[in-house]
């Protein structure tokens, strides 16, 4: 980060005598003392600024790969993934009653509300619903018993 000056750039109107950046740059103070109201801060030699020589072109192709991949593993799933299919290599098919399927929309919108987002994808909602069940088997058992599981 050598190119930046931390703070403001050198746009300087010199108006009202307010010397911005006093604690940061003495050169800027010198400039503002010239008190020019509208002239550019300095004469600009803009040779070599055609579109074919746009600043900010070209990128270092190695830049992306510089970061170690094991570093990424430290981050939680939602941070490290790029899209909803990432790392989800196992496909689970489930068969449910209509009444259960119909509840999914309401579940997702309540979930979205909890997360303070406008929508939660089906895949995310389902995977984490399953995880929640894994964490609370007693709750799952209760629901099953409500529907007469222990009777058989």
């Amino acid at each position: 980060m050598n190119n930046f000056k931390s703070g403001s750039g050198n746009l300087d109107f010199g108006a009202e005598g307010d010397e911005k950046d006093t604690q940061e740059s003495e050169e800027v103070v010198e400039e503002s003392e010239s008190r020019t109201t509208e002239s550019p801060p300095e004469q600009v030699q803009s040779s070599g600024t055609t579109s074919s020589q746009n600043p900010g072109t070209a990128g270092d192709p190695d830049r992306e790969t510089n970061q170690g991949s094991n570093e990424a593993a430290e981050y939680p799933y939602f941070v490290r993934r790029n899209n909803v299919g990432d790392e989800r290599d196992t496909r689970l098919e489930i068969h449910v009653r209509d009444s259960v399927a119909e509840q999914e929309g309401r579940f997702r919108s309540r979930l979205a509300d909890e997360l303070d987002v406008s929508e939660v994808s089906k895949t995310d909602a389902r995977e984490f619903a399953l995880l929640a069940a894994y964490e609370y088997p007693e709750k799952v058992a209760e629901l099953m018993e409500d529907e007469g599981f222990s009777v058989i």
Binding site: M1, N3, G9
Partner: peptide
Amino acid sequence: GKGNLSLDGLEELVGNMETQLDIEIGLS
């Protein structure tokens, strides 16, 4: 989902502008 904060693209752009146009660009 990457490790470091990257402002590389911005820094390159700013660096080139500063040299070519002889200005000083600040990052608030």
